[in-house]
Amino acid sequence: MIKQPPEKIQPQIDYPDSDGQPMADNTKQFRWIVMIKENLEILFANNDEVFVAGDLLWYPVQGDNKIRVAPDIMVVFGRPKGDRSSYKQWEENNLAPQVVFEILSPGNTTAQMAEKLLFYQRFGVQEYYIYDPNKIELSVLQRSGDWLDSVAEVNGWVSPHLGIRFQLTEDTLEIYRPDGGRFLTPLEIDLLRQQESQRAEQEREEKERALRELEAERQRYQALIESLRARGIEPEEM
Rank of each mutant, 00 (worst) to 15 (best):
Q4I: 15
E7M: 12
I13W: 10
P16F: 09
P16L: 09
D17P: 06
S18H: 11
S18L: 13
D19T: 04
D19P: 00
M23V: 15
A24M: 04
A24Q: 05
T27E: 07
I33R: 00
N39E: 14
L40T: 06
I42P: 00
L43D: 07
N47C: 09
D48G: 15
E49K: 14
F51W: 15
V52K: 09
A53C: 09
G54C: 00
D55K: 00
W58S: 09
W58T: 13
V61F: 01
V61R: 01
N65E: 14
R68W: 08
D72H: 03
I73N: 08
M74E: 10
V75M: 06
V76N: 08
G78E: 12
P80V: 07
P80Y: 04
D83Y: 13
D83A: 11
S85L: 13
K88R: 14
E91K: 06
E91I: 02
P97H: 12
L104C: 12
L104H: 04
L104W: 09
P106M: 01
T109F: 07
Q112M: 13
Q112I: 10
E115Q: 15
K116T: 05
L117Y: 04
F119E: 13
Y120N: 11
Q121L: 03
Q121E: 14
F123T: 01
Q126D: 14
Q126M: 14
Q126Y: 06
Y131V: 12
D132R: 08
S139Q: 13
L141F: 15
L141V: 08
R143P: 00
G145L: 11
L148K: 08
L148C: 03
V151F: 06
V154D: 02
G156S: 00
W157K: 06
S159W: 01
S159C: 04
S159P: 01
P160I: 04
H161L: 15
F166Q: 08
Q167F: 05
L168K: 08
D171C: 13
I175Q: 01
Y176C: 12
Y176H: 09
R177C: 11
P178E: 07
D179T: 01
D179P: 01
G180H: 01
G180V: 05
F183V: 00
L184E: 13
L187F: 11
I189R: 15
L191A: 11
E196M: 14
E196H: 14
R199M: 10
A200W: 04
R204C: 09
E205I: 12
E206W: 01
K207A: 15
L211V: 01
R212L: 13
E213A: 14
E215P: 07
A216S: 12
E217N: 05
Q219I: 12
Q222P: 01
A223T: 04
A223P: 00
L224N: 04
I225H: 01
E226F: 05
R229L: 10
G232S: 07
I233K: 09
E234C: 00
